[in-house]
């Protein structure tokens, strides 16, 4: 005989969902009052917003030649930052992988450092590096190196943790040292993953590097800052369009290469 399954009171009236909704709504209202959200102000100020937008709809095409060099520099910064970040990430990711380093203390410390690095937003790193090494693309490269190091080492150690342990056991049984095991059994298995993550990180770095110049860390962002400072929104539009094209081209190329790697 078919019976309708009995639901408890909490299930029938969706108590859990209602409680969560109330909590989220309360937090939302609190956040809005803390940040002074005022729809009226937004609606009256919306003309101002649209005015900038209209100016951006008439891009200053004569500005295009000036954006070429900064765009090239942006890509170069992203390339170098990704390379430095990934090279530094390799030893860290090996030390953070559960199946390679059996000592939980070492692994824990390394992972803790990696987590700390990942909490820092890219623009904040850029602000600090501009203060340290001065205005210029060097600050951008260092920012991207640190930023991609945090991200890529996590992707790398997760890739290492999924490998087949057979070759490692075989090499250990044959008397190989730890370094030999990593070199001949671990790295060949994760090589393709590494390349794929390298490209993925490069995509993210290109996106990030287009904005770093806003704080003086080189690349196309410098023009963003200059045009906004001069209220030349028609030029800002050119910079935004240029950024868009670069991001789309790099994403497409990198996606093609990554598909070939799989």
């Amino acid at each position: 005989m078919n019976t309708i399954p009995k639901k408890s009171f909490a299930q029938k009236w969706h108590v859990k969902a209602i409680v969560w909704t109330v909590i989220v709504l309360a937090l939302f209202i609190a956040s809005c009052s803390v940040t002074g959200v005022d729809v009226g102000v937004f609606l009256t100020g919306f003309n101002q917003f649209m005015q900038i937008f209209y100016e951006m709809l008439k891009p200053d095409w004569s500005y295009v030649p000036f954006t070429v060099q900064p765009i090239i520099q942006t890509i170069q910064m992203a390339l170098i930052g990704t390379l430095i970040g990934s090279i530094v990430a390799v030893p860290f990711s090996v030390l953070a992988a559960r199946n390679i380093v059996t000592n939980p203390a070492i692994r824990g410390i390394i992972r803790f450092i990696l987590n700390l690095v990942r909490t820092l937003p890219d623009l904040m790193l850029a602000a600090i590096f501009v203060a340290v090494v001065g205005i210029g693309p060097m600050a951008g490269v260092l920012t991207l190196a640190i930023f991609s190091f945090g991200m890529i080492s996590k992707l790398f150690y997760e890739a290492i943790e999924t490998i087949d342990m057979g070759p490692i056991e075989a090499l250990t049984a044959a008397g190989a040292t730890k370094t030999q095991v990593v070199w001949f059994a671990v790295l060949p298995q994760v090589y393709n993953h590494f390349l794929s993550y390298f490209l993925y990180t490069f995509e993210i770095n290109v996106r990030a590097s287009t904005i770093l110049g806003y704080l003086g860390a080189g690349g196309i962002g410098e023009l963003l800052q200059r045009s906004l400072g001069q209220f030349r929104y028609d030029r800002t539009a050119i910079v935004v369009i240029g950024t868009f094209i670069v991001v789309v081209v790099v994403d497409t190329l990198s996606n093609q290469l990554r598909e070939r790697l799989q």
Binding site: S31, T35, G36, V41, F42, F49, I52, I211, V248
Partner: peptide, 27 residues
């Protein structure tokens, strides 16, 4: 994709013009 690529900083500056500097522009 266009919305995603539009730099957040530029968006923030546009909203600052609309509602004045402060956390509301950030929201």
């Amino acid at each position: 994709t266009i919305v995603r690529t539009f730099p957040e900083i530029v968006m923030a500056i546009m909203f600052i013009k609309a509602v004045g500097p402060g956390p509301f522009a950030g929201v």
